[in-house]
Design a protein around this nucleic acid. Structure first.
Lengths: 123, 123
DNA sequence: CTTGTATTTAACCGAATGGTTTAATACGTT
DNA sequence: AACGTATTAAACCATTCGGTTAAATACAAG
């Protein structure tokens, strides 16, 4: 899976997002992270593995503890990806906006539209 | 599933992100959206259903066509969620930053750490 | 070396994903 | 009414996901 997909996938779970929120207060052990949840420790362990694979956390060793630390780099990328669409959620959808929209999207997002000529054009 | 999870889930697929990118150039029919991909039409249809459920697109009716339109509102929320962590990907990790980090995260993100007293503290 | 604590692994389960192929449906045109 | 085009629905399949319980591992302390 590509990096961005892995990141979004990891974020698509409330437990994992809560874990990241908790880690924004500083490093924590698996047990500490598990405490707020009503699920088994192995379940949390799996969530942590997903977060680790997505490089959203890193893990240390301290005796029998594996403290987790937040690593926000992928969030920066996710943020940048959504940022690309800011114009659309801020759009007022008048003529000028539509024009600027088209200008910018042709530059930044994807290949030009090149709509195929088809029956709809008769309308 | 909660709204944010649904959004991230929908974004966790390169085909769906490409469809959104295409739609940032303006509305398109299912066939037009499917053209760049080497997968079957029903597969695209399913992806569109996922995007629609996540309210990332809306769909119209025009004769036998179901034109899709980008709806960026959920992207605004996703963007806002990641924004919460900006300080972490911008952090220089010196003493002052750490202090400000703690201040802000106690206010905005989640309950205080309250580390349990345990063996590690003896170290 | 035994016990207790922290964590992971293994095996299992049901539901969801992402794809397929083969119909079915909806509509415009002839 | 029959045909062609656009799209979805149904049935199927392999894989992944998110959870469980029970067992294994790693380490510190007595």
């Amino acid at each position: 899976m590509d990096h961005l997909s892995t990141t979004f996938q990891a974020l698509a779970d409330p437990t994992r997002r809560a874990i990241l929120a908790r880690l924004s207060n500083g490093a924590a052990t698996v047990n500490e992270l598990a405490a707020p949840f009503s699920m088994s420790l192995p379940a949390i362990s799996k969530h942590l593995k997903v977060l680790e694979r997505a490089q959203l956390i890193s893990r240390g060793k301290e005796a029998q503890w594996r403290p987790c630390e937040l690593k926000a780099a992928p969030l920066k990328e996710a943020n940048a990806w959504t940022e690309q669409y800011r114009q659309f959620w801020e759009a007022r959808f008048d003529r000028l906006d539509a024009y600027l929209q088209e200008l910018q999207s042709n530059e930044k997002v994807v290949a030009p539209p090149k709509r195929k000529t088809n029956a709809r054009n008769k309308k």
